[in-house]
Amino acid sequence: MSKPFDIELFLSAVLTGSHATRQRHVRQAKIIQAEIADRWQRQTPWAWHKKHMDWFLEHRLRRRSEATQYYYLLTVRLLACRLQKTWVFNL
């Protein structure tokens, strides 16, 4: 049996800021990971494509406040940075 992917360890290389900010990014990244895994069965960020992130931002956050969308956008940008991708996301 394989271990579940540790998103906190994955993001640790790019996380900066206060403890609360780092925890928020980790919490949101876990939610993003769970939603993408549920929809496309892609468990790790290494298997994700830009379309997966776009889908999450556009469809899963549609009814959320602008502030919530913005904070998730920051987390998605951190994930893209960690993946060393040049993806551009807009809300």
Results as ranks from 00 to 15, higher is better:
L15W: 06
A37F: 14
A47I: 10
L78W: 11
Q33A: 13
K51T: 15
V88N: 01
Q33C: 02
R64E: 06
K51L: 14
W46T: 07
V88W: 03
T16F: 02
F5D: 05
D6S: 04
Y70H: 15
L79G: 04
T86L: 08
A13N: 01
M1A: 03
W55S: 13
S12N: 05
S65G: 11
G17H: 01
R77E: 04
R82E: 03
L83R: 11
Q23H: 03
V26F: 05
N90M: 06
V76T: 00
R39K: 05
R82A: 09
K50N: 05
P4T: 13
L11V: 10
F56M: 09
R22C: 15
K85H: 03
Q23N: 06
P45T: 09
A37P: 11
H25V: 05
N90Q: 00
Q23A: 03
R27Y: 00
D54K: 05
K51Q: 10
R62W: 10
R22V: 08
A37W: 15
V88M: 01
W55K: 04
R77L: 01
K3Q: 12
V76Y: 02
A67E: 11
I32Y: 12
A80I: 04
K50Y: 13
S65P: 08
R82K: 01
A80R: 06
Y72W: 08
P4K: 14
M53S: 08
P4V: 12
N90H: 12
V14A: 11
N90G: 00
S18P: 15
I7E: 11
C81L: 09
H52M: 12
K3L: 01
R24F: 01
L11M: 12
W40T: 07
W87E: 09
K50D: 14
D6G: 02
E58P: 08
D6E: 02
R27M: 04
L83P: 05
R63F: 04
H52K: 12
P4A: 14
A80F: 09
S65F: 10
R27A: 02
F56D: 03
L9S: 04
A37V: 14
Q23F: 06
Q84H: 02
V14D: 14
R24Q: 03
L57F: 06
F89M: 07
Q33Y: 06
A20H: 01
T75I: 05
R64Y: 13
G17I: 12
A34T: 04
D38P: 04
K30C: 00
Q43C: 03
I7K: 14
V76E: 00
W48N: 04
L73Y: 08
Y72I: 01
Q69T: 15
I32A: 12
Q28S: 07
A67H: 11
A13L: 13
S65R: 10
E66K: 09
T21I: 09
L61D: 10
W48D: 02
D54Y: 04
A47V: 02
I31C: 10
R63H: 11
W55R: 06
L79N: 07
W46Y: 15
I32H: 04
